[in-house]
Design a protein around this nucleic acid. Structure first.
Lengths: 227, 227
DNA sequence: CTTCGTTTCAAACGACTGTTTTAATCATCT
DNA sequence: AGATGATTAAAACAGTCGTTTGAAACGAAG
């Protein structure tokens, strides 16, 4: 039984298609995001990944373990965008003004949203997270620690710079939640949002409209709180 | 086959426990909210409702229809609070000022949130909706038409009164989405929100803090947009 | 070549799924 | 009383589920 494959064995065929394990992970990410854990059968997974049924148990032990591994994989690849947010923070820190921080927040929102909607087409980590939120498994801890907290930290610092008068960290947290909420909402409840906006599908233009609105709304709220 | 039971037959035993159909609906609401449609078997449902397995097909035709009927039932009982929102709207309409509308929006948010958090303990419609949003079924139409749209209408009118300068209905929709997003977020992603706020569980005080913040944030945003 | 460990394959396992069937039970009415 | 219709009950239906099996195919090392 070989469930865990380290990097000790180099592939002799670097030009070929991904091996069975990788294809299985990719198919699992797609199908678990679309149908959820319970509604996705290992037979569907195997067919979609062009892999024998037994490969699931061979590489991952069982179906549930494949699910956890899929989540880990999806969120670790989603974490690659973190430097971009860090650089937004650095840029704001240099100018060290409240206005620069507000600009940073606008960039943050744009980046966040474009990631979210890009994710719905390639890396499905948002959909997987939405599922986790409505029925949490132990995998939720991993998501919070490795994905949410690092991004949240950047936003908190930006808000702090934009509104140095806010001393209570709980208030900072609330402001951050309000911004994140608006971004996630348009992605997680997308089918309903589209219906309310009488649209059939997501266009880049629509995403831009969303991020512009959320940024305007939130920055107005941040500005308004002072006076 | 008798799937639809009207009120043409009066129960001869009004003092007894709810009949099989009602018990099945109640159990279904509980179990579908906890485990979702796919992970809940009709045998589990029947056992939980203390009903024979065949009762599911006898009263509802099939499992999926029971699910839709459960959603309809859960959301129709949640719709009983609608008059409260209508009265908020009426009150704002009387004064007919932008300030009165903003007060109405604050009331709307407070009412909305207290409903959401009360619902997580008694009627499970929020959990059911969260599930529907992350994996939509045909039942989503019912939710949108009978639950979301009526409430949304009130909020749109309040925003319109608060900001008569906004002409584009799409902009109104964005403002409404921003407010709804913040409310839903704190309920749907509750396990994460609690963690970020370093809290163990929801207290009435915490709910009040949330609604106060969302109202302040949103009203500031609405005010800020004018100037 | 043979040997070895790894990977793939088709087939089968028992358990569980939603649904149907057939008979039994019940309350109500003539 | 019997007859009628609605409801409940137990058993069986065909199909799918996750998982296991044992053998075939594979590449690398001796």
């Amino acid at each position: 039984m070989v469930f865990t494959k380290g990097e000790e064995m180099l592939k002799a065929s670097p030009e070929q298609r991904p091996d069975a394990r990788a294809r299985l992970l990719a198919a699992a990410e797609r199908m678990f995001a679309e149908q959820g854990l319970a509604s996705t059968s290992v037979r569907d997974l195997a067919r979609e990944a062009d892999v024998n049924i037994a490969a699931v148990n061979y590489y991952f032990g069982n179906k549930e373990n494949l699910y956890i591994e899929t989540l880990r994989h999806s969120f670790s690849s989603a974490r690659e965008v973190l430097p971009k947010f860090e650089s937004i923070l650095e840029q704001a820190k240099e100018k060290a003004t409240s206005e620069a921080a507000l600009d940073g927040i606008r960039l943050y929102i744009e980046e966040f949203l474009s990631n979210l909607f890009a994710a719905t087409q390639q890396s499905k980590h948002v959909v997987l997270m939405a599922r986790e939120l409505s029925s949490p498994t132990p995998a939720l801890d991993v998501i919070v620690e490795e994905f949410i907290l690092p991004k949240q930290r950047v936003l908190l610092l930006l808000i702090q710079q934009a509104r140095p008068d806010i001393k209570d960290p709980r208030d900072l947290q609330f402001y951050a939640s309000s911004i994140i909420a608006q971004c996630l909402h348009h992605c997680m409840t997308l089918p309903v949002v589209l219906r309310l906006h009488k649209r059939k599908k997501v266009t880049p233009d629509f995403v831009h409209q969303i991020s512009t609105h959320i940024a305007n709304f939130s920055i107005a709220a941040l500005r308004g709180g002072t006076q």
